[in-house]
Design a protein around this nucleic acid. Structure first.
Lengths: 161, 161
DNA sequence: GAATGTCTACTCGGATACGTTCTGTCCGAGTGCCGAAGG
DNA sequence: CCTTCGGCACTCGGACAGAACGTATCCGAGTAGACATTC
């Protein structure tokens, strides 16, 4: 069990787009070259971000992608859900109702949620909460504090400035 | 991204083994029949639990599995790590170092951990902490509180009592 | 009758196929720019 | 010289293969017990 590569790609791509400002839209090819990624596959992930409302796409010639809203209004959870979908980490298939045990227990035994499901859901809620509490602006600020020289290099890499 | 079925199977199986006490070891066939699972595949998961030290296996005729330690000393995290392995949810492939951006930045920019990795790791730590704080004894207690009649039925299903 | 050796039935353990998801690629639909033609 | 129209190059969007992992299954290694044989 591990998250898709698309999450990492999407996070870095969103941060790059933020550094470039709200001018011309940026093409998939440029965004892919920035980190040496597969342009076609990155495009697939960006479409998911568009569908989730994190990006706006401009079709046609001189088209591309730009942020749909500022980084302050995007959480890490938004990115994960956009790429991975909002299905739960742990899926309860209600095996408690099946087999020699399930058949032997009265229906009333299953009125409440499965205790295993509840325990797993509690942990997943903590994960989501921690993701939701971190905006992409926070991530960008942390990155900039670590390496102040990088933002200017990013703009150079995209031919801006 | 979602957890393996094996996690659900392992959790319920461990709880069942606890209800049966520390007498005769229980065979894979019995444990599988309890919830109508594939015996061979369940056996695969149980072997992972043995390797992780949660179960003891008795080979040969009249063999089977029994708990290696009481439920109080097992956390939900132990089960997840045993079945899924201890690889991180989010794997950072250091794409920040690649492409036109990576080549343009001095090596010193990458001295510290990637900010994206840190953000994701923070959320994963919260998930693991929440899992570690819940022992299987807690889960069993919650289940028993919901449906007090079930434990006796479980023992019946296994021919105990 | 007791001890011993063998044999059989049973169970774990790992090696072997199948299906689904993730990963990666390709081509078509749509759009803006450029240039030529006409007024 | 200005306007208009057509062609073209470029980009997103979704449909199409390949690889990796999760799922499921089967067969061999090893053990405990039962039975026949021998003393």
């Amino acid at each position: 069990m591990r998250t898709s590569k698309g999450v990492e790609w999407a996070m870095h791509t969103l941060l790059n787009l933020a550094l470039l400002g709200d001018g011309e839209p940026v093409t998939t090819a440029q965004l892919a070259a920035a980190h040496d990624l597969s342009a076609s596959y990155l495009n697939k992930q960006l479409q998911l971000l568009v569908k989730a409302g994190l990006l706006e796409s401009v079709p046609g010639a001189r088209g591309g992608f730009r942020l749909a809203r500022p980084l302050e209004a995007m959480s890490a959870l938004d990115v994960v859900l956009a790429v991975e979908g909002d299905e739960p980490l742990f899926r309860c298939t209600e095996i408690r109702r099946c087999g020699t045990i399930g058949e032997r227990c009265p229906e009333a035994s299953f009125a409440q949620s499965c205790a295993v499901k509840v325990a797993m859901g509690r942990a997943e809620a903590a994960w989501r909460k921690a993701l939701a509490e971190q905006s992409l602006a926070d991530v960008q600020a942390a990155a900039a504090a670590q390496a102040p020289a990088v933002p200017a290099r990013v703009r150079q890499a995209f031919g801006r400035d």
